[in-house]
């Protein structure tokens, strides 16, 4: 059973009286544990596709199945629950909560899903922060962290609830090349160690070289889908 299946997914935005097609019919299957990159020029539909996969948006036409469950026509509440338990997000601009420490930003995500004891939860958060190389920085607030450290917190936040799928929209776009390489390394390590499926959009060739599968989007359609051994 595939983790993710998209069949004939189309997304059309209405801008006044004009219909703007963002996705023109995407057929895609993603298996468990894949490390996939979606690339393509600006306006090719990368972010729209990630939003569809991440249950943040619903397609105008077509079907999306996550873990063999149809998610493309769920209610807002059901979509929120699907995101809560199955999907982690890493954003280009980190989107951390500035009044919370690194520890609390990660704790925030796990508290939405976890029903284990306080001590187990704490252990898990600290372990995840250590995994992404932030041991000792747990009590720092986002404004006391560098860009790379912030993105690590965001990755830990996405991973801590052990989702089946992590979606990252241009995760290295705001980082210098060295920090970007570190961040991608961490994602790859988590992919290997935890078997979490990663799908990320990027323009960055350095990020692309780590990917095992490349999906090229052009004008809202998949123009190439290649795997590397």
């Amino acid at each position: 059973m595939s983790l993710l299946e998209l069949k004939g997914v189309k997304k059309i935005y209405q801008q006044g009286k004009i219909e703007v097609p963002a996705l023109r019919g995407i057929d895609l299957t993603v298996e468990h544990g894949e490390f996939t990159t979606i690339f393509g020029p600006s306006g090719s539909g990368k972010t729209t596709l990630l939003n569809m996969i991440g249950c943040l948006d619903t397609p105008t036409e077509g079907e999306i199945r996550l873990n063999d469950k149809k998610v493309s026509d769920l209610s807002r509440k059901a979509l929120a629950m699907t995101r809560r338990f199955n999907i982690g997000f890493v954003f280009q601009s980190y989107n951390l909560i500035p009044v919370l420490t690194a520890y609390e930003n990660v704790e925030f995500a796990i508290r939405l899903t976890n029903h284990t004891s306080e001590s187990q939860m704490k252990e898990k958060v600290l372990k995840m922060l250590a995994e992404v190389g932030l041991k000792g920085l747990e009590s720092r607030r986002p404004n006391e962290l560098s860009g790379g450290e912030k993105q690590r917190v965001a990755i830990a936040r996405a991973l801590v609830k052990e989702p089946k799928l992590i979606l990252a929209d241009e995760p290295t776009a705001n980082l210098d090349s060295e920090t970007a390489a570190d961040v991608v390394d961490i994602m790859r390590k988590m992919n290997k160690e935890l078997g979490t499926t990663f799908i990320f959009s990027t323009h960055d060739p350095m990020v692309m070289k780590y990917a095992k599968r490349f999906i090229n989007l052009k004008d809202g359609m998949i123009s190439a889908d290649e795997r590397r051994g």
Binding site: A80, T82, R84, I87, F89, N95, I97, R157
Partner: peptide, 14 residues
């Protein structure tokens, strides 16, 4: 606004 978007992405209900 972005923070609210992040909260929704994490699966927080309204």
């Amino acid at each position: 606004t972005e923070e609210i978007g992040m909260m929704k992405a994490l699966g927080m209900r309204e």
